[in-house]
């Protein structure tokens, strides 16, 4: 099938963005990654100009690593699972807007990982030496935990969230949901107050404006708004408790 691909490009973080358009004939089963691979093999624009191959990030191509996230026809999603036959004959590709662009479709998402560090998104184990099995976890808790732990830090929820913008340092829905994951684990709960404190800091949970875009945009159906609501209550109770204890 014949398609036109319009790519918003930029050669470096500081250079001016511009547009390149490519005409391609691809198979019915093609996805946006195979389109970008084809452009890379033959980077000639509609006007016949030979240009530098379009840079893009990808790895697993199975929608589990989160690397190839970009805006496709205005919607943030993974390029590997965006099938051409569902996109129409014109495909507009641009980098995520809420993260600094490095080159072309590649952005730097390190603020997500910094967020995970801020909220101590880990289980504080004593060490890797043998201490026998972990605490028992009910099937019910596992089912919720598993849903939360499928978050691949792709950034789609932040792209969709109106509260993530130039004027705020909102930590974002993905990181908040990870707080719930670690707070519901028996060992993780031992430092749950640290995580709640981090969420009560500047750029924390109070920045959420309840637009609920995040949960609709998430490609892995992570229960983001459920997590935010739950942690809103937990931080509230915690702050009352802290007040009474002081």
């Amino acid at each position: 099938m014949k398609i036109r691909v319009i790519v918003e490009r930029r050669m470096s973080p500081v250079s001016t963005p511009y547009i390149n358009e490519f005409d391609l004939d691809v198979e019915e089963s093609a996805n946006v990654i195979s389109v970008l691979m084809e452009i890379r093999r033959n980077p000639v624009t509609v006007s016949g100009e030979k240009v530098a191959p379009v840079s893009f990030e990808c790895s697993c191509l199975e929608e589990v690593c989160g690397a190839c996230t970009m805006n496709i026809n205005g919607k943030a999603r993974q390029a590997c699972s965006a099938l051409v036959k569902d996109l129409g004959s014109k495909i507009y590709l641009s980098p995520l807007r809420k993260f600094p662009v490095l080159r072309d479709l590649i952005v730097d998402r390190k603020r997500i990982f910094e967020g995970l560090r801020r909220v101590k998104a880990w289980i504080p184990i004593d060490g890797t030496h043998g201490l026998g099995p972990g605490p028992k976890v009910s099937e019910k808790t596992q089912r919720i935990g598993y849903k939360l732990s499928r978050c691949m830090s792709c950034g789609v929820c932040m792209e969709a969230c109106p509260q993530v913008n130039d004027r705020s340092n909102f930590i974002g829905p993905a990181v908040i949901a990870q707080v719930l994951l670690f707070n519901l684990h028996p060992t993780g709960a031992m430092i749950k107050e640290d995580r709640l404190e981090a969420l009560m800091d500047e750029g924390g949970i109070s920045e959420c404006g309840n637009a609920q875009n995040c949960v609709k945009a998430c490609p892995k159906q992570v229960p983001l708004t459920f997590s935010i609501a739950k942690l809103n209550r937990d931080t509230l109770f915690y702050s009352i408790k802290r007040l009474l204890d002081s």
Partner: peptide, 22 residues
Amino acid sequence: PNIVYLLDRMGVMFNRTPEGFL
């Protein structure tokens, strides 16, 4: 067995039996 127990302690959301075991 040590490795799987360690991962369990690290909070990996392994599937569970109805009794709560791995």
